[in-house]
Design a protein around this nucleic acid. Structure first.
Lengths: 98, 98
DNA sequence: CTGACAAATAAGCATATACTTATATTAGTA
DNA sequence: TACTAATATAAGTATATGCTTATTTGTCAG
């Protein structure tokens, strides 16, 4: 039951934009903040939430902090959704049988 | 961009329990409420949220209302997560190359 | 038609949370 | 050492939302 943190984290649109911005390469906090209409502290707070959900990882490089996606959180979410998806399809098909 | 409603809907643990309870077969509102420590109105409100997110569908049967999973919402979510997952893996692999 | 049952809606409240500004921390630079 | 840059943390606020009770709407049984 670790996907609950990930689901809650991705429910926020600003955090989803952060994740999407990290899709292809790591970015520094300031760089992320520039594109987001929110202040730098807000971005740091969002990153902390994403970190706890294991959706991103941060490492210090000089005096900057580079964040990148952590596959772990996404993997758990995917697994959960795939299970639901499979069951939903089965139940849906069954609902036509009778 | 329809997965945002689904993400927000599934972020709530009570709503997730509702979805999980509907995994295998349709259920009536009262039946769902009995297993959930919340009142019937709360369940109805949650179901409304899930309906707007296209995660469930409800149909009237007599004076009861049977809800079942709607694959549509889950499909959108899955698609979104799969894209993120793929990109995350690529970026992760790339981060080892250099 | 009347009463009871099932679900949805209304209204209100209490808490969670996404934001802000201000400050602290840590690392590079002159 | 002092100064600046980059990020994190603290504290406070405003809004969103998940819950409750009370009421409304709709359906079946007698």
């Amino acid at each position: 039951m670790a996907y609950d943190l990930a689901m809650a984290a991705l429910a926020d649109p600003t955090r989803r934009r952060l994740v999407e911005r990290l899709r292809h390469r790591p970015r520094a906090v300031g760089e992320l903040a520039q594109h987001l209409r929110v202040t730098q502290p807000a971005v740091s707070q969002h990153l902390a939430v994403l970190r706890r959900a294991r959706l991103v990882r941060g490492r210090a490089v000089g005096r900057r902090r580079l964040y990148q996606l952590d596959p772990a959180g996404l993997a758990m979410l995917r697994q959960y959704l795939d299970r639901m998806w499979g069951d939903a399809l089965e139940a849906y098909a069954r609902s036509f049988e009778e």
